[in-house]
Design a binder for these strands. Structure first.
Lengths: 209, 209, 209, 209
DNA sequence: TATGAATGAGTCTTCATTCAT
DNA sequence: AATGAATGAAGACTCATTCAT
């Protein structure tokens, strides 16, 4: 990126991070188009000009926020899978339920943490091809990891890619509901246990005996 | 709404409809913020000025488009349920699968028809509270209808609201994938049969004998 | 040019012309970079926005001004040559002097009329390739016209292109001096007669007997 | 000038000179307004801040560059005149041609050396009064020197100031053409000999016998 | 002295909305 | 009712200049 500068000195890094954090936060909260550059500058307690030393344009702030966010969601999930995989003993369905539970808690947490980010991200993923690409890649990476993890534990799925994608969607929907409370009539605890039950059923029937 | 006018005379109605149709189309295709009012006027073959006699503002066009779209999706689905309910004979699981299949075909059709509409709609649903409300209401109406339908056929679900919501999400995700082909590695036929299988499982285990 | 509109209705034409006139004037007077878009709008008594319906950008205003200016200089000169050429009688050196005199008066007039335009134009011609191109083309067209004119009158020059170019420069320099009075110590009348004398000498020695 | 400092210590002088050299170079190449202060700093391998210890503002760099450039052109020309004047023997027309030739070679060289400088200088001379003044003064000084030189050699011109000015313009135009090759259709050798011929004619006819 | 990160006023440009015709 | 030219507030971005270190 011409003209931009990724600083090394602590202060500058902190400033750049503050711009990303506050900028991404604002954009997610009130929407990309309703967030102005001066607003971001103000929120990050910097001048308008400095933003353009760290980023090519407004979109650059969003992209960087997205990447960091993406990692903050993806990496912990992978960590759980990795940590479990290190034990050489195979997991059984009971273990699976625990892992599922931890994963869902984690994802919900990440949704909750980043507030409205997820919805704005989906919005941008639609309007902006490059952003959409990040999501797809991100999901694909995780999916493959999960499939590998299951296989390592003798949970061989028929149509694994499709099933994981469906499970992915189930969890994602559950998270949205949990975090944004869109539908007052839904009971979250019930939702969660139902989702886990469904996932278990999906996995169970394909289990190699 | 002050200043707006919902015309009765045929010509004016046609003009208003054209604005909604073309405007909504454009907004869904290239995004709300990337669609300008003059562009909409041009696409609808009217003058810029006239738009503001039919709508309060740009947002108004989108809202109206959304409502019409919402109905175009909701009503046919309800029709299927209603049509089936008119037969006094109870349905069995086999019937259910057929109904499910018809519903999914319908929803996929509606997604396909409206191209990029769905993604843009979700985007707006996030940025705009009123729009989000429409979706929630819409889903709730349908959910209650489905629950009633199932009960009438002695399919008594435990946690029906939550389950329908989950099913709703499953179908929605399937549609997105089908229409936008986001993930090349997914096989659509497999997706569809897996989703139907999962839904059947969800319903089956709660079936009153 | 996408997005711009060349109006036909009298008022709009007048407005567009006013933008060109006042904009070009300001740019020539105080320099391209020191003239802001709002200033141009104010001077032309229009809003900022309307400028961008008639022109792609600030540069567009200048370009259009340049073209009009260029023509206002070029065409009258060609007219003189054409008018003279219509007489079937060949001109002699005495006639030539008269024509020269009229041409110079004309060029000086055009310089005087457009005030500081010429200097700003040269400045832009340096900074902007496209503008430079206009000047070169313009000069070349005229040069060829002049050569043809002279030949038709049996004034066959050795190295005609170079000589006309030199003459061109002589006249141009004289104009600058006349209009801007850069050097107080120079007597304009003297300058004029000297320049004409030199030009006559250049032409005379090549005259076919 | 308040705040500026003209250093004596070698290092600082070198730094200041580098700023002038590189800054002036850049400004002439790509234009005054398209050259930024940080760019100049980078080219001169100094920090942005230090520039404002040596110069009041961006314009100051240009002014200083201009002065140095002006001298680098003016002085060598004067040297030629002086060197010739030292010989007590009068020059004749043949000598004059040689001197003319050397002068033109020199001027062309200086133009070539400084690349696009001349055009940018003319541009600035228009936009900036003070700069224009430098040129006028510079030309006047040289003109008087030339007149004196000619008189000393019994070449008494009628209207000497005007004639020299005209000659000045002839040479200047020739240089531009030579250095920038604006018009492909012009032959440089022809141009040069024609210009010299014209100048000789101008001088010859006024020659005191 | 020297640095280069930081400032923020100022620029061009867009576009929802209005209004004279 | 209809037009589309006109408005002008607001936004993204630049860059000469300053100042903490």
């Amino acid at each position: 990126m011409p003209g931009t500068r990724i600083p090394k000195s602590g202060k500058a890094v902190a400033k750049r991070d503050r711009i990303i954090e506050k900028g991404f936060e604002l954009m997610c909260e009130r929407g990309y188009y309703k967030t102005t550059t001066p607003e971001i500058a103000k929120a990050a307690d910097v001048s308008t000009g400095i933003i353009y030393q760290y980023f090519n344009d407004k979109r650059g702030i969003f992209m960087e926020g997205l990447k960091q966010f993406s990692n903050s969601v993806l990496f912990p999930m992978m960590d759980i899978l990795d940590a479990t995989a290190e034990n050489n003993t195979k997991i059984d369905l009971g273990d699976l339920e625990k892992i599922l539970d931890r994963l869902m808690t984690l994802i919900v947490q990440s949704h909750r943490m980043t507030q409205k980010a997820h919805e704005e991200l989906e919005m941008m993923a639609h309007a902006d091809e490059e952003i959409g690409e990040i999501f797809k890649t991100s999901e694909f990476t995780l999916t493959k990891k999960i499939v590998a993890f299951l296989e390592k534990n003798d949970i061989i799925l028929e149509n694994p890619i499709e099933k994981i994608h469906i499970i992915y969607g189930l969890v994602e929907n559950y998270c949205h509901e949990t975090v944004y409370h869109h539908h007052a009539e839904l009971n979250n605890e019930v939702m969660r246990s139902e989702v886990i039950k469904i996932i278990k059923n999906i996995l169970k029937e394909s289990l190699v005996k």
